[in-house]
Design a protein around this nucleic acid. Sequence first.
DNA 1: GCCGTTTTCGGCCCGACTGTTTTCAGTCG
Length: 573
Amino acid sequence: MTIHNTEIAKIFQTYATLLEIEGANRFRVRAYRNAARTIEDQPQDVAIMIRAGKDLSELPGIGKDLAGKIKEIVDTGALGDLEKLKRTVPEDLADVTALPGLGPKRVQALHEHLRIDNLEDLERAAHAGKLRKLPGFGAKTEEKILKEIERRRAIGTRTKLMVAEQIARPLLEYLKAVKGVKQAIIAGSYRRRKDTVGDIDILVTAKRGSDVMKRFAAYDEVDEIVSQGTTRSTVILRSGLQVDLRVVPEASYGAALHYFTGSKDHNIAIRTLAVKKGLKVNEYGVFKGEERIAGKTEKEVYALFGLPYIAPELRENHGEIEAARKKRLPKLVTLDDIRGDLHAHTKATDGRYTAEEMVQAAKARGYDYLAICDHSKHVTIAKGLDAKRLARQIDKIDRLNEKLKGIRLLKSTEVDILDDGSLDLPDSILKELDLRVCAVHYQFGLSAEKQTERIIRAMDNRYFNILAHPTGRLMGEREAYAVDMQKLMEAALDRGCFLEVNAQPDRMDLNDVHCRMAKDMGLRLAISTDAHTTANLDYMRFGIDQARRGWLEPDDVLNTKSWKDLKALLARD
DNA sequence: GCCGTTTTCGGCCCGACTGTTTTCAGTCG
């Protein structure tokens, strides 16, 4: 059994939290948290890295001790120190610290004085009015805790980026219209374009005495005001999404935007640079002693450290500061670079529009080409095409192309990769197509070894061009299937195949980390919408977001190429 | 527990808000 990175990270996070409750040194706690993040950020399972003989202590934040503990988890499936600690600090207390307002100190007090071991105990004690009697607790805290437990029950934790956009954009417009507001922008992971966001951070500059805070709290979607001050307020909207609003003076806009965009790790790295230079960075600016020497723009803040502007998508402390220092930041791909979409469906299977309607929509977006990739017969639920129906579609597209001006329809398919790694359509029809997009739709439960083998076997077919939605995940609904991504990418590189970044807002696979992995290997990717409607073609920008987070430049993306150049890249002979 | 172009020991980012305090600890981002 292969232990996955998320499981190891989870063990370290739990251990860190329990240590914290126990009252351990906070830097020791932080070391476990940092290690958890480092492991989670690895595109490849560390279990596989260990098997390959890699020394994990070379990873940032992982020394000899933690490398040993990782190995222990990989070998045994558990961490002995954590198992031991659980005997004195109940594991479920980690869930209790996840409630806002309850940190390690207060949870420790709850455990010691009221023998609270988990959320259920907490809820019972709160209902019985026992919490308010503890020192440091009061009636208000008790009420808040009960409300929060209820809220958690009702909703999940992270929100998909597209959903966050739909909720946050109208709020931003509302705030911009408040008298005295000068600038208003959404910062945080939203601005970094992460595929999901935990909350929304809005930054505003306003004239003195502006009532923006009051108006914010009065927004008609506000369900609860968590806190309200003169420079910072937090509310929870009816959707369950938490929104933080920060107000800063104009002279601090850049520093504040930098600060609230994060990521936390990027900020810490910048502040550490500052400390070395005898400077101090906070949300109000960069300071030399008492004097503010930068802060109006982000560019100004970076310039002070001899760095060019770093795009928000790169700010994860994944080497961007080093790259900036060496003037080697990538020139990130943009929506304007995209010349076409290589994955779209029509009414022939589970799409909603005809090829003609789809191509007009693509033309309206300025594209040079659009690939029609309807499902193959194995996907019965989508009325997948067999060779005969696909042949008819090919004829139809040929006739359409004769009429089309300024754009070309590409004949393609989303052909199923069958259990044994063969493709769901015969070579005799595959060879008639301009390109073939291949995908797994069944048998998600295979072991990583078997799934990897199955897909690589499919790549051996000379008509295999692009692997669609390479992990099969549906965010919030279905986990990615187990697969060795490194091996898949190596196999693709060997055979002249490619992988897809699926821009559907609930798919987003490949994700940012995978994009970076492909970039480092020199493997080009397609960014495709998998559109089932004309409007879906607009999902392209979400794919671009993840590509940018993965450092991709225009040349790294297949569909920034002209059809002529793309055709040459796809040719496998 | 990690880390080092000042260091193998002594550091490890910084400020706002809340609630319960009589001047601040705890928590959060």
